[in-house]
Simulated scan of single mutants.
Amino acid sequence: MPMPEEAIEPGKCYSAGAENYRVVSITRSIVTYQAWPKGGKLHPLRINCGLKAFAAAVRKEIPGPPPT
């Protein structure tokens, strides 16, 4: 079940199954995030996505990525 849009917050991490995301910022309903695969390291590139689409993709809040 998708998460509610109001539950998505900057600085928190979320799981979408095989991939995890750390929200960097939310500006005018655009989520900027970084991704990392389960068991992997945080990818340095930042990705933008609409808040509605991001909330529909993630399933739950999780602890942050492993240190690099």
Rank of each mutant, 00 (worst) to 15 (best):
E19Q: 12
N48M: 11
V23F: 09
R28P: 11
P10H: 10
L51G: 01
A18F: 14
S15E: 02
Y21D: 06
A16S: 08
P2S: 01
L42N: 07
E6P: 01
G11R: 06
T27K: 15
G11S: 03
P10D: 00
G17A: 03
L45W: 07
K12V: 12
I47K: 15
V31I: 04
P4I: 06
E6K: 09
G17C: 02
C49N: 14
F54G: 00
P4S: 00
A35N: 10
E61A: 11
K38L: 14
K41C: 00
G50V: 03
I47P: 13
P63W: 07
G40R: 04
T32N: 07
R59I: 11
L42M: 03
R59F: 14
H43R: 14
V24G: 03
V24W: 11
V31Q: 00
P63N: 00
Y33H: 03
K41I: 01
T32V: 04
P67I: 09
P66G: 15
K12G: 10
W36C: 08
E61T: 05
P10L: 08
A7M: 11
P44G: 05
E5G: 08
W36A: 06
P65T: 02
V31Y: 05
C49Q: 15
G40E: 05
T32C: 06
S15R: 04
P67H: 06
N48R: 13
A18H: 14
K12P: 11
Y21P: 10
P66M: 15
A55R: 07
P4Y: 04
K41P: 01
G17E: 07
A16L: 01
P10F: 13
P4Q: 02
P44C: 04
G40T: 04
G50R: 14
V24E: 02
S29T: 14
N20M: 10
A56H: 06
R46F: 05
E9Y: 13
P44E: 01
E61K: 08
A57M: 08
G40F: 05
S29H: 13
K52H: 13
N20C: 12
A55P: 06
Q34G: 02
A7T: 11
V58D: 04
G64E: 01
A35I: 04
W36S: 03
E5D: 07
Y21C: 12
G11L: 02
E19A: 13
V24L: 03
I30D: 07
S15K: 03
C49W: 15
E9V: 12
E19T: 14
G11M: 04
G64K: 07
H43S: 12
A35W: 12
P44H: 00
F54A: 05
P66D: 15
H43P: 09
P37H: 02
R22G: 13
S29G: 12
P4W: 03
Y33C: 01
T68Y: 11
A16D: 01
N48E: 11
N20A: 09
G39T: 04
G11Y: 10
V24F: 10
E9K: 15
Y33W: 07
S25K: 13
L51F: 10
C49P: 10
G11E: 00
A7C: 10
M1A: 14
A16I: 05
G17F: 04
A53R: 09
M1C: 14
A18Y: 14
R28K: 15
